[in-house]
């Protein structure tokens, strides 16, 4: 890690006792910034209550460390088992970062990591159209940014007020099929892919979340996992 310490925020220029209390667990592991340390130590020198909290945080940390000593590790043959599964596992391609790059795969192709063949372009266009009709066109955030995340452009009600789901699609799921399923649910992709490859799906306000989850799980050929979002 290049620098895993907390970065000093504007708030850190005037930490109150509650702020210091919140930061103590990171202070004991050396993860607070030098600016924060100076303030924490100033508060500590004047507050027996904070000193007691610090002692408690240190004890909690020691107990955490001690509790891991007997935790063990995976079975000896575990790695071989995983290596044996790699043959059948498709590796996704990188996400293109420049939407103006004429050679870059289409939007859906980038979103789902597919090669941009002429046939797939047609399917992608069809899928895009289906979702645009539903009012959930997907655009890349901040055109030239390197975030690699996406949000809906024309469905602000979904992202703002509707319930969210976290969905993982099969790597080989067809784009048109996904577009069709989302259309049936009046749903749209709000952002993704997340670090684990999942996507945040927005439903309309008042949508039946259990029904949407059941419907998505019913498409086991397209969807590998569904969780409730925030």
């Amino acid at each position: 890690m290049s620098d895993s310490r907390n970065t000093a925020s504007p708030k850190s220029s005037a930490l109150g006792e509650e702020d210091v209390m919140e930061l103590l667990p990171w202070y004991v592991t050396g993860k607070t910034s030098p600016e924060e340390n100076a303030q924490i130590e100033r508060h500590l020198s004047a507050s027996p209550k904070l000193q007691a909290e610090l002692a408690m945080a240190r004890r909690e940390r020691q107990v955490s460390l001690d509790g891991m000593q007997a935790i063990g590790e995976p079975s000896p043959d575990f790695l071989n088992k995983v290596l044996g599964q790699l043959d059948g596992a498709r590796q996704w391609g990188p996400i293109a970062k420049d939407k103006h790059d004429a050679e870059a795969p289409g939007l859906f192709a980038r979103l789902f990591g597919f090669a941009s063949t002429p046939a797939l372009r047609l399917v992608a266009i069809a899928a895009c159209l289906a979702i645009v009709v539903e009012g959930a066109a997907i655009v890349k955030l901040a055109g030239n940014s390197s975030s690699g995340t996406y949000e809906t452009a024309s469905a602000p009600d979904m992202s703002a007020a509707g319930p969210h789901l976290i969905v993982q699609f099969q790597p080989n799921a067809g784009m048109a099929a996904i577009g069709s399923v989302l259309s049936e649910l009046d749903a749209g992709i709000i952002r993704g892919p997340m670090p684990d490859g999942s996507y945040v799906i927005g439903l309309k306000p008042g949508a039946d979340v259990d029904h949407a989850i059941a419907a998505l799980k019913g498409h086991a050929d397209l969807v590998t996992g569904v969780d409730r979002g925030s």
Binding site: P74, A89, W92, P94, G148, G197
Partner: peptide, 18 residues
């Protein structure tokens, strides 16, 4: 735990380029 670890590692393999 081993099942979840297995799933995690397979996801690392699939998503490494991302």
């Amino acid at each position: 735990v081993e099942d979840v670890l297995n799933e995690t590692l397979m996801e690392v393999w699939r998503q490494a380029a991302r």
